[in-house]
Every structure is written in structure tokens, then in C-alpha cells.
């Protein structure tokens, strides 16, 4: 990614993981540093759980899939420099993971859930393009989020074996 495009990147923090009570999914809530913009991304149960474990600095007894990815990149001397939520098409978000290997930057296509789970473990920044943030659905999103019971935050079963 060129320097010009990088100026369009907005850093985001993972605010939390919500359980969507109506579906078997979870919602990763990303916010910009001023809390002005929010980006909710629907993810599967396993991915939501993985992101929550990383947020809470929980080290499971056995490595989960994203711990394994981090372990592999560490072993091979690769550094995750950052991840970017790059696009949204038909309600599907797209992301890239950027890593440095032997001094070269490399980019891999990923689902945002995997990219975020990897970034949190590598303590690497998460960005979104301003274009995606502009196009994210629904002006009434904040109202929708406000209506969610705070109890729902962080509640999920750890179903992975």
C-alpha cells in the first residue's frame, strides 16, 4: 500500500464484542480514537471468542488458532505491522494483514475477524479506510447499539475444545 493511500487510514480500537441475541453471531465493535465513529462487524462465534480472549489477555492452556498464527509468524521472524479493513461489499467486510518478512512488506487477504484477532495478539494497529467508514450502514447505528443491554457485552460461551 502506497504512502498516499495510507493517509486515508483511520486507526480503530476494539471497543468490545457483543453477542447478537437474535442470531448465532457476535459483533465486534470498533471505534475511532475520538469515539465519533463506530464500525460494527458481525463475526462467527469462534472468531468472536478468539477476539474476546485477546482483549482480556487470556492465555488459554492450549494455543487457539490465532495464537498458532502468532506463534508461526514469531518463529519465522515475521512481524505483523498492521491490519486494514479495506472494503465492504454486500454487507461483507474485507481486510488485509500487512507483515514484514526479511525487510519486505507483504500483504495477505483476510476476513476482518481473523485480521483483528491476529492484530490484537501481535499488538499491532488496526485501521479502516475512510471510504469504508463513510459507507458503513445505517445512521441509526448508535441508537441500535445504545438499546443493547450492557449485560450482553462480553457474554458468550467458550465453545472451542
Amino acid at each position: 500500500m502506497s504512502v498516499e493511500q495510507n493517509t486515508d487510514l483511520i486507526p480503530l480500537k476494539v471497543h468490545g464484542v457483543l453477542v447478537d441475541p437474535n442470531t448465532d453471531t457476535q459483533i465486534v465493535v470498533l471505534r475511532d480514537e475520538t469515539n465519533a465513529d463506530v464500525l460494527p462487524i458481525w463475526v462467527g462465534t469462534a472468531e468472536g471468542t478468539s477476539i474476546r480472549l485477546a482483549l482480556e489477555d487470556v492465555v488459554p492452556p492450549r494455543p487457539m488458532s490465532h495464537d498458532l498464527i502468532t506463534s508461526m509468524t514469531d518463529h519465522l521472524g515475521m512481524t505483523v505491522s498492521h491490519v486494514v479493513v479495506t472494503d465492504v461489499k454486500n454487507n461483507t467486510y474485507y481486510a488485509t494483514i500487512h507483515f514484514i518478512s526479511n525487510g519486505l512488506e507483504r500483504t495477505v487477504d483476510a476476513r476482518p475477524s481473523d485480521a483483528i484477532a491476529v492484530a490484537l495478539r501481535a499488538k499491532s494497529p488496526i485501521y479502516v479506510t475512510s471510504d469504508v467508514l463513510k459507507r458503513r450502514g445505517g445512521d441509526n447505528l448508535d441508537a441500535w447499539l445504545a438499546k443493547l443491554d450492557p449485560q450482553q457485552f462480553g457474554q458468550s460461551e467458550t465453545s472451542d475444545a
Binding site: A46, S65, M72, T92, R106, V108, D109, R111, D114
Partner: peptide
């Protein structure tokens, strides 16, 4: 879209 283990393979392939 790549699932988690597809991503794992893709990272390894990339290097």
C-alpha cells in the same frame, strides 16, 4: 472468503 486455516496457509505460502 478465506477461513482461518486458509489464512494460515496463505501467510506461509506468501513467504
Amino acid at each position: 472468503r478465506p477461513m482461518t486455516h486458509d489464512l494460515m496457509k496463505s501467510i506461509l505460502d506468501n513467504v
